[in-house]
Design a binder for these strands. Structure first.
Lengths: 252, 252
DNA sequence: TGAATAGTGTCTTTCAGACAGTATTGG
DNA sequence: CCAATACTGTCTGAAAGACACTATTCA
């Protein structure tokens, strides 16, 4: 970030007050943060969407959109804090897996003017997906790389990027572990992998990979059922995501 | 991006004119774009840095910084166009490998106020690294994950993230191909991999991997030297980066 | 001929894919 | 006992690691 070069234009809104003295008297883009929140519900990968309002000057009235909004320079210390705030406001979840996805900015993506959004994606366990949900929020199952209804702004593009990133990383990381409840069995974890990847995995290779990674530990408990009970595991404390040296299936 | 929620504070600069009518009467962060430009020079991975000016109100006077600056809402159609503009202004290179790295935004990273930067990283061939360089720009060799001099803002952190991302991706992608001249030999490409990764690679496995990927093609030419000449290759036309199914060495 | 580097072949190791086989529960 | 699911073992194949070997140039 060097000092400003080039000429300022007269277009758009201007900042005033102390800005001129510091040489900051030029129009600023709008700055927002959006969060793509994933969970597993009903044996499907789902994403949280909000119904927009229809007040005066609101673009895309009544359309569906990702949770997000303007950065509040008084409340948000940094971008991630802003993303966590949006997440907590809409789901009550306070410490999910949260990763920066990228940013989208252009003159045209928001009819109110040049705007740039910082997109994050979060993984939350199914157990947390129902509890403190905001009234205007709703889960939608993913179909392919998107969702059935049309989305506001360029949110369909952002959602598509999030799904691709998630699917891609699931091939060689332990990210699906963050979609699990506190205690889970290996077959349940494998099922989560399979839902996200939308293809079956080999049981044997899957178990070897998961058990040889420094990721989960067995607890003194089993999941009962109408069949052989399964060992329960939990994430090791302070478990950062594990990166494996290979992807799951050789990509054809 | 939903409508604005919460309360606006009185801190910072305000927008005026049409903003109020549209409900946009709240302070906006500064929006910048920074580009981490890598090349290979003198058998080392190097990064382009700029010496900042020392005009009135300029933060970090005379310090080194990444090429970048404010988004110009009149000139830049979108963030990537802004990054390409900065790159072309400083190096003359117009079509490098360019990838979004992430964004950094906080109340404190710029003394002029809440600011968010969109960081990109670019790979350019050594041949292009010298030609149309801006007078205030200079190449610096990387040592570890950073560079010797102190950098302005949080640019040391951004640079570190760029190096980590590059090193990580080089383990399983063909990114170093974008650091090569138009024509290159396989040993030269391997040397580039080794410089970026800072460790030797096995010749045999390297050749097998590169030749079986749909990435390069031999041309009817050889590189002469005081030894056996080497086959010259070029990138296949419209070669997107190749992703391999495994990393190079098993991570210990 | 020898130095130097380009390029190939061969053996081993690692780990996923395939899939058969064993284990343990409830009914 | 049987159905159902959990879990293990064994064989195979693909690709990397190690490293020896051959090939081709110039001096």
């Amino acid at each position: 970030m060097a000092g400003r070069q080039g000429t300022d234009s007269g277009a758009g809104d201007k900042v005033s007050s102390g800005a001129k003295r510091a040489g900051l008297d030029f129009p600023r883009p709008l700055t927002t943060v959006d969060v793509v929140i994933f969970t597993i519900r009903l044996e499907a990968l789902q994403v949280l969407l909000l119904r927009r309002g229809h007040g005066e000057g609101e673009p895309f009235p009544d359309a569906l959109a990702l949770p997000g909004g303007f950065v509040d320079v008084a409340r948000d210390a940094d971008l991630e804090a802003c993303a966590r705030r949006k997440l907590a406001e809409k789901t009550g979840v306070v410490s999910p897996y949260l990763e920066q996805l990228g940013s989208w900015g252009s003159a045209t993506r928001d009819p109110r003017g040049w705007s740039a959004t910082h997109a994050y994606f979060a993984l939350i366990p199914a157990s947390a997906a129902e509890t403190a949900l905001a009234p205007d929020a709703q889960w939608f199952a993913l179909e392919g790389a998107g969702v059935k209804p049309k989305l506001a702004f360029d949110h369909a593009e952002i959602l598509q990027a999030a799904v691709q990133r998630l699917r891609n990383k699931v091939e060689y990381t332990s990210l699906p572990a963050y979609l699990m409840a506190d205690e889970f069995t290996l077959p349940e974890l494998q099922r989560t992998y399979e839902i996200v990847l939308d293809r079956p995995l080999e049981k044997s290779a899957f178990r070897t990979r998961m058990l040889s990674a420094d990721l989960i530990e067995p607890i003194n408990k089993q999941r009962k059922g109408p069949n052989r009970p399964a060992q329960l595991y939990r994430l090791k404390t302070a478990a950062a995501p594990v990166y494996f040296a290979r992807t799951f299936n050789a990509p054809e």
